[in-house]
Simulated scan of single mutants.
Amino acid sequence: MIQTESHTALIPGRNSLLIYAGFVGLGLLTWLTGLYLTGQGAAGLRIFGPEEIGLIVIGGAGVWLAPRTGFPDLLDARVPDSQRFLFPFLIGLGFGAADIAVFTLVMHPAPVTGLMPFMQPFPYSLLLYGSGALYTDTLYRLIPIPVLMWGAGNLLLKDTRNEHLFRGLALLTSLIEPIDQLITDTPELALYSFMTGYAMNLLQALYFRQSGFLAGLMIRLGHYTLWHILFGLWVELLN
């Protein structure tokens, strides 16, 4: 766990703020691209809109508070790039491969003849699911965990870096997505959906704590790369 009391470690670095501003720009680009393609006659596109972009903007508060509550900055020099990017991305790929296996072998063993609801046309899918991953992790981690740690730490615990508080928040916030997206086709699939969803969200929270927000985000990007983007591209190429 990276802990420091130096003043410079309590504020996000300039490059980290520029990266996060770029994330906001990515959301804007995704929105405008979706509107343009729809205007050109593309049907069935999911639009990443102003509400999603607004939430990412609010996530800047999480970037600002994260170093003050014991999380590494986005580009903390003490975190190896392998821990920030490579290892979490590989973990995400593993979750994506498991989902594809379950879908193709159990849920939909017949050949997929068109894009499923969780797919979008390539290369628009790159923008949509890249922005979608950022939105989801901002909603479930970047905003609630540092903000609640800052508030409770100042008002109740007098310790904004309290590890017990972080663990409780990690366990609770990791429940939200798997419950919201629970697959209820069969009890076995429901169990698989909940267990893998909870495991991935909890790992994201732990990587966020140990290696910064980008590390947790890379897990989701790895999952989305296989499950949403490459799986969708494969279906398009076959049909």
Score class of each variant (00 low, 15 high):
N239Y: 11
E163V: 10
D81L: 13
P111S: 13
S125N: 07
A97Q: 04
I179K: 04
F231G: 02
Q83A: 12
L148K: 03
T30I: 01
I143L: 09
D185P: 05
V63I: 15
V79L: 12
L115K: 08
A61Y: 09
N201P: 07
A190Y: 03
L155Q: 01
T8K: 06
L134N: 10
G41K: 07
T136R: 12
E236D: 13
R68E: 02
R220L: 09
P72M: 14
G34C: 03
S6I: 01
R209C: 05
G34Q: 04
P109L: 04
E52Q: 15
G114Q: 14
P109V: 09
G22K: 06
G92K: 05
L238I: 05
P50V: 11
L189D: 00
P12E: 02
L35E: 14
L217N: 01
Y198G: 04
A42F: 13
Y124A: 11
I47W: 08
L156P: 01
L128Q: 00
L128N: 00
W227P: 13
H228P: 14
G70Q: 02
P80V: 03
V102A: 14
R167C: 14
L191N: 10
T225V: 01
G216W: 00
P109N: 02
V102Q: 14
F71Y: 12
G62S: 09
L157T: 09
T173A: 12
M200V: 01
Q210S: 06
L32M: 06
L233N: 10
Y224C: 07
S16F: 07
L202C: 12
Y135E: 09
G13E: 09
P121I: 09
I183E: 14
M116T: 12
Q83M: 10
G168W: 15
N15C: 04
L191P: 10
L26D: 05
W227C: 05
G130H: 05
R220D: 07
F166I: 11
G212E: 04
G153R: 02
H223M: 15
D81V: 10
Y224T: 11
L35A: 11
P111A: 11
I2R: 12
Y192N: 06
A205G: 04
L26G: 09
G132K: 05
I58L: 12
T69Y: 03
G96L: 07
P123I: 02
A66M: 14
L148N: 01
G60L: 08
P72W: 11
L134G: 05
H164T: 15
L10Q: 07
F194E: 13
R220T: 11
Q181A: 12
T160P: 00
G39M: 12
R220A: 05
Q210R: 13
L65D: 03
S211R: 00
R68F: 04
G151A: 10
L74G: 04
L206F: 14
E5Y: 15
G70N: 01
V63L: 12
L127R: 01
E51C: 09
G70T: 05
R84W: 04
V235A: 06
Y124D: 05
P187A: 02
M1L: 07
R84A: 10
L127H: 01
I53A: 02
F89A: 07
H108Y: 09
T8P: 00
G94V: 07
E188A: 15
I58P: 10
A152L: 15
H7P: 00
F103C: 13
A101M: 13
F23M: 14
H228G: 08
V235C: 03
M200L: 12
P146C: 00
L230F: 15
G153M: 01
T160F: 02
Q83K: 14
P123S: 10
